[in-house]
Each structure stands twice: as structure tokens, then as C-alpha cells.
Design a protein around this nucleic acid. Structure first.
Lengths: 210, 210
DNA sequence: CAAGAATGTGAATGATTGCTCGCATACGCA
DNA sequence: TGCGTATGCGAGCAATCATTCACATTCTTG
């Protein structure tokens, strides 16, 4: 009969919170981490600094929220790619996965670059490692359909290879297009084809053919 | 090759200059770019801030000098690898090149990572692009011995692939060892093998904008 | 409506930074 | 020894930033 118990969520707050995070993203994109000040974020979000500190305990928390958002987005895209291609030929499944992985980098290259670096100095090492693991696991199923001998390490390498080419493109302001996608696919396919059949999933053994 | 030096004061002691640069390197390595303050650099180098500003016009110049030093080092290692393996089998030449490329990253992983990022916000875009070009050219000869259809874009991709795997290893604190080297080699070899024979020319040239 | 709670505000605070400048020391040379 | 110059020094200045807090505005509810 009394007022409904106050739930933890604050409806209005969620939208403002998102606005602040998006403001931080836009600043990172246009000015890099050097321009990412709390006052700038608040101004861009259309709130006062005082309000910003009502939604986040400090600047780091804003950045952490941004990273988490972006990472969740990426993971969900990749998961969608996997489940949508469960029955499709492996080549097509891999392509979908790579497209998903390229998407956020291609959409906002500068942001992806800055966020990745900024996350490094944040205290998110654990989450970062967890994400890497989850991505590797996700990829592994598809990768194994192309190269049954592949293991977790190989899956991680596939991610690293794709990231390397995409980052290089972003750094030289190359537009992400079919050409870039084709090169990433070539690199990944070539790498997978090269995997020795005994390398399984544990750490790669050092000795290989001369 | 000489680039016009920045208008810094004529240094009396090149050794002091080098000490300052090395101090900056050590700070980047241990504390990241966040800890890289002019006072910290001076203290680590064993000079006063006043003296630091006698050798460099500003903080940026110290970082620029560090980057130039590291880059020159890398290039010279790669050049040495090429000329030492001019007559050797292509596989061995590639291996030497990759080893050279891995060397500074393996010796001081954190420094390589931080320096690369720091250089991004510096006004060294031109030099960075020039370095990338020079590295691609350098690699191209050797790469062509393994895959004659390869072009500049493929050489650049080889660099990007290697960087991607090595950076991922550094980020996850994996030690650089024979295992890592083997994986890089596998990735590069696989990529080269995958190049279609008609892609040699500048098919993917859509980025140049100095 | 009234009053208390929730939410919003932005000038003030304290810490840190890049950098300057007046002065001290070392050195060269008569 | 005296004097000019090159070099080294570090306290202090101005700017910037993250964060706080006393107050204003809006919402909720009896």
C-alpha cells in the first residue's frame, strides 16, 4: 500500500549516463586522450561537472564504462556472426566473423585506437584478458572448421593478425573497404593453412622445421 | 639521410642529451606516458630541469628524439639482416628480418608499446609514414624472393601482421621466445603463400595522402 | 500546497605540470 | 688574479585538471 520500494535503477539516470559515455567517445575520437577532460566530457554531454560526478565516481569510471560498452558491442556482433553461420560453409562463417571484428574499427577508427590504449593504463587488465579469452573461444569453433588442428593459441593469433592489419590501416588513415577485408581474409586463411597438425591448443612448441 | 634538426640549442655534450633520452625511455618503460614528466626525466637523467631545457626546446622534443633513436636502431638492424642474407636462402633471410623486427619489441616491450602510441600524438606523422615506407621497401626484396607476386602493399601487410602478433604477446606479458618467433613466421609465410599472382601491382592503393 | 528529497550547478580548491629566469658555478684566457 | 662567458641549477610562475561543496532547481508525496 505504500510507495513501491525504490529499485536500484534510475530511469532518467541511465540516459544521462549513456550521454556522458558517448560524449567521452566523441572527444576521444576528435581530440584523443589528451583532450579527454572531465569538464570537456560534461560540456559535450550537456550536463555540468557536478552532475557528471553524480553518475560516475571519477574520470576513470567514465572511460571504463565506455570500454565496457564497446567491448560488449563487439562481442555481441561476433556472437551473432557465429550463430548466423552455424550451418553455412566455413569460409562464409569466417568472413562474417572477420566482418564483425572489423566493424567497430571501421566505423570509428580513431576511437577504437584511443580506447584500446587508454584501457591499457586503466585498471581493467583482468577484463581485458577475459575479453581476449572470450573472443578466442568464440572464434575457435569457426576456425576449427577450417583447420581442425587449431587451438586456443591459434585463435588468439587470428585475432592478433586481423587487429594488426586493421590497426595499420587505421593509423595510415586508409579507409576500411573491401580491399582491406580481402587482405585480412588472406592473412588469416594463409595462417590457418600453415598450422602444423600437432600444434593443438597449448603453448606452441619451439622446435619446428628449419 | 639527414633530416633538418629541430632548432634546438647547440649541444655541448651529446652524452648528456643521450642520457636525457634514455631517462625518458626508462620512465616510459616503468610508468608509461602518465609518469613522463619533464621533472621526472631530468631527475632520472641526473640533471636539473634547467639543464634539460638547455638541450631540448620542450618535452615533445625529448620524446621525438627518443622515437627517432629507436626507429633508426630498428631500421639499421633490418638493413643488416638484409645485407647479411643477400645470398642466403629466402627462408633464412626472412627469418633474420623477422628477428630484427622482433628484437626491440622483445627487449623492451613496454617501451615499444608506449613509444608507438606517444608518437601518434606527436607531430611526427610524416616521419612515421616515411619509416613505414622504408621498412616496406626493405622487406619487399626479401619477400619477393619467397613470393614474386608480392608488392608494396603486401610488404606493408607483412609488417602489420608481425606487429599484430608481437603486440598481442607484449600486451599479455607473454615472453618473446622461440615460440612467438615461430608463430610470427607461420603467419607471414602463410600470408605470402596466399597472395594471388595478379595482386602485385598497386591494386590497393587508395590511401596516400601526405 | 508545502516540505523534504533528489538532482543539477559551477565557482573554488588543491595538486600537478611544463617551463622560465635570476643566480651560482666552472672554465678559458689575459 | 681578475674578468667574460658558457653551463648548470631549482624555486617559482602560470596554466590546467580532477574533484568538491554550498547552494539552486525540480520532483515526489502526504
Amino acid at each position: 500500500m505504500h510507495a513501491p520500494r525504490k529499485q536500484a535503477a534510475q530511469p532518467r539516470s541511465r540516459a544521462t549516463q549513456a550521454a556522458i559515455v558517448e560524449a567521452a567517445a566523441r572527444i576521444l575520437e576528435t581530440s584523443g586522450s589528451a583532450g579527454l577532460t572531465t569538464n570537456a566530457i560534461a560540456a559535450r554531454a550537456g550536463v555540468s561537472i557536478g552532475s557528471l560526478y553524480q553518475y560516475f565516481p571519477n574520470k576513470e569510471a567514465v572511460l571504463a564504462a565506455l570500454l565496457r560498452t564497446k567491448r560488449a558491442e563487439l562481442l555481441s556482433w561476433m556472437r551473432a556472426a557465429v550463430s548466423a553461420n552455424q550451418e553455412a560453409p566455413p569460409e562464409k562463417a569466417l568472413q562474417a566473423l572477420l566482418d564483425a571484428g572489423m566493424r567497430h574499427q571501421v566505423e570509428r577508427p580513431r576511437l577504437a585506437l584511443e580506447a584500446e590504449y587508454a584501457g591499457q593504463q586503466l585498471h581493467l587488465a583482468e577484463e581485458t584478458a577475459a575479453l581476449a579469452d572470450e573472443m578466442a573461444q568464440l572464434i575457435l569453433e569457426t576456425v576449427r572448421r577450417l583447420q581442425p588442428a587449431a587451438g586456443l593459441q591459434e585463435a588468439r593469433d587470428v585475432v592478433a593478425i586481423a587487429k594488426g592489419i586493421i590497426n595499420a590501416a587505421a593509423l595510415s588513415s586508409e579507409a576500411g573497404g573491401p580491399g582491406l577485408a580481402a587482405r585480412v581474409r588472406r592473412a588469416v586463411r594463409g595462417y590457418l593453412r600453415e598450422i602444423p597438425s600437432n600444434s593443438a591448443d597449448s603453448r606452441a612448441a619451439s622446435s619446428s622445421m628449419p
